[in-house]
């Protein structure tokens, strides 16, 4: 199972527990991991399923490349970090 962790800056808006979810790419892991809290998901992705402009996701330390499709591969024990970009705000 992959693990999803969130920037502490998000915790003031929503509960951000450490989440485990299965999937072979970022889309699958995010979809499964955030299915229980669609509002939390809305902080990460817009309604078209694209990563928000000023949010980043790192998979095992590497920033994902496909911000619209979230097709970057995820290893079974991967660590995903949802980060707040330093742009925006």
């Amino acid at each position: 199972m992959a693990t999803i962790r969130f920037t502490a800056n998000l915790s003031k808006h929503r509960d951000t527990p450490v989440i485990t979810a299965a999937g072979t790419n970022v889309r699958a892991v995010i979809d499964e991991g955030l299915a229980a809290d669609p509002l939390l998901k809305s902080y990460v992705l817009d309604e078209q399923g694209r990563l928000r402009k000023h949010v980043n996701i790192f998979v095992d330390g590497q920033m994902i490349a496909d911000r619209a499709g979230l097709s970057d591969p995820v290893d079974p024990e991967a660590e995903l970090y949802v980060m707040q970009a330093l742009s925006g705000g």
């Binding site: 509002l39 809305s42 902080y43 000023h54 707040q84």
Partner: peptide, 20 residues
């Protein structure tokens, strides 16, 4: 929100508590 998009909140108790 600059980073996390638009959000909407409602209060049913004149602002004592809010729910997203």
């Amino acid at each position: 929100h600059g980073h996390f998009g638009c959000k909407l909140h409602r209060s049913d108790d004149r602002g004592a508590t809010w729910r997203e």
